[in-house]
Computed example of a mutant assay.
Amino acid sequence: MDEMQKKHRQEQKDLQSRIMQKKKSATKKTRKGINDECAELEGQLKEKQAAELSSLTEPPVEDEGVNDVIVDALEEEEAKEPSSGLTASLKSMSVSVHSAPDGPPKKQNRQKARLARRAAEQEAATEQAEREAADLPDLREQEIKSMREAYTAKGLTKHEIRSDGHCLYAAIADQLEDLKIGLRPKIKITTNDVDPTATNTGYKTTRQVAAAYISENPDDFAPFLEEPLPEYVKTIRETGEWGGHLEILALAKAYKVDINVLRADGRVDKIECGPENAPHQLWLAYYQHSFGLGEHYNSLRRTC
């Protein structure tokens, strides 16, 4: 029992670690699905551990009705071949076992048996999934290699951005400062949360600018949101929530610049909000598999 409890505690710890990793990698669109998946994993583990504990705490029980099945089969055989001595003998033995003087037969706990069977099936499925995963290519290494080839071919070099919820805003701030554009937005923003004279405050300023622009232009963004716009803006302004396409669009409009987002397969997502023939364009690298927290943006600077 002590060994079983120790094993269960380790399984629970491992599951919590998996759940934490899944939730960290969730986006706004995938969060509900991942939460449901995590709840299902927790339920499966509880069922599996309950079945294992039951196998230790209760003795094996006789399968209910097994002798009845034997007797039925023998009677069917006897109907085909009457006066069969072997059939009669086996039937007698079966009946004697069924009515042994040790008391009434114990009923099988079918629910626990079903849970144990389900746990065994889930464990087998998990092992199969792990074997299949071992045969898959290393997506992280492939993405890093492909991305390096893609930005090198465009005369760009990677400037590493810290992998956290602020990476998009920090990458755009790095681009604005590297290109001497500055963090002061190019349009008038009336909110008090943005200091128009702010310099060298990095992602904090770009976060506030994105929040302010979205707040002051609700018709451009509200149709694409799954929550009320004020709550969405508050999340941008006050938390470390990841940014995505809408925030890139808001910042491109606020700073009146073109922003190019390079993907590992060489595709470039272009957000064109700058003047025609603008001397500078911002470049970001978008990763899906290379960082533990999930999606990530790096800043791409010109090599010369």
Rank of each mutant, 00 (worst) to 15 (best):
1 M>R: 03
5 Q>T: 11
5 Q>E: 11
7 K>Q: 13
8 H>Y: 09
11 E>I: 01
11 E>Q: 15
16 Q>A: 12
17 S>E: 11
20 M>T: 13
25 S>Q: 15
31 R>P: 01
33 G>L: 12
35 N>V: 11
37 E>M: 01
45 L>H: 05
47 E>L: 10
51 A>Q: 09
51 A>C: 04
52 E>D: 14
52 E>W: 08
52 E>F: 03
54 S>M: 12
55 S>Q: 05
56 L>D: 11
58 E>M: 02
65 G>Q: 04
66 V>Y: 07
73 A>N: 05
76 E>Q: 14
81 E>R: 13
83 S>W: 02
89 S>R: 12
93 M>W: 13
98 H>V: 04
98 H>M: 15
98 H>A: 11
99 S>W: 07
100 A>K: 09
102 D>P: 01
104 P>C: 00
108 Q>V: 11
109 N>E: 11
112 K>G: 05
112 K>W: 07
114 R>K: 13
118 R>M: 14
118 R>L: 15
119 A>W: 09
121 E>C: 03
122 Q>G: 13
125 A>L: 07
130 E>S: 09
134 A>M: 03
138 D>Y: 05
145 K>R: 14
146 S>P: 06
153 A>D: 11
162 R>L: 13
165 G>I: 03
165 G>H: 12
167 C>A: 13
169 Y>V: 12
170 A>L: 07
174 D>V: 00
175 Q>F: 00
177 E>I: 08
177 E>W: 02
178 D>C: 12
178 D>W: 02
181 I>T: 10
182 G>E: 10
183 L>C: 08
189 I>P: 00
191 T>I: 00
192 N>T: 10
192 N>C: 04
194 V>D: 04
194 V>M: 06
197 T>D: 13
199 T>H: 09
199 T>G: 00
203 Y>M: 12
203 Y>R: 00
208 Q>R: 10
211 A>L: 05
212 A>M: 06
212 A>E: 06
214 I>L: 05
217 N>G: 03
217 N>V: 01
221 F>E: 02
222 A>L: 09
225 L>H: 01
229 L>T: 10
229 L>N: 05
231 E>K: 09
234 K>R: 06
234 K>G: 00
237 R>D: 07
242 W>S: 07
243 G>K: 09
245 H>Y: 08
246 L>N: 13
247 E>Y: 03
248 I>V: 15
249 L>N: 14
251 L>S: 11
252 A>E: 05
257 V>N: 09
260 N>A: 03
264 A>M: 01
267 R>D: 11
270 K>H: 10
273 C>Y: 02
277 N>E: 08
282 L>P: 01
284 L>A: 09
291 F>R: 04
292 G>Y: 03
303 T>I: 10
303 T>N: 06
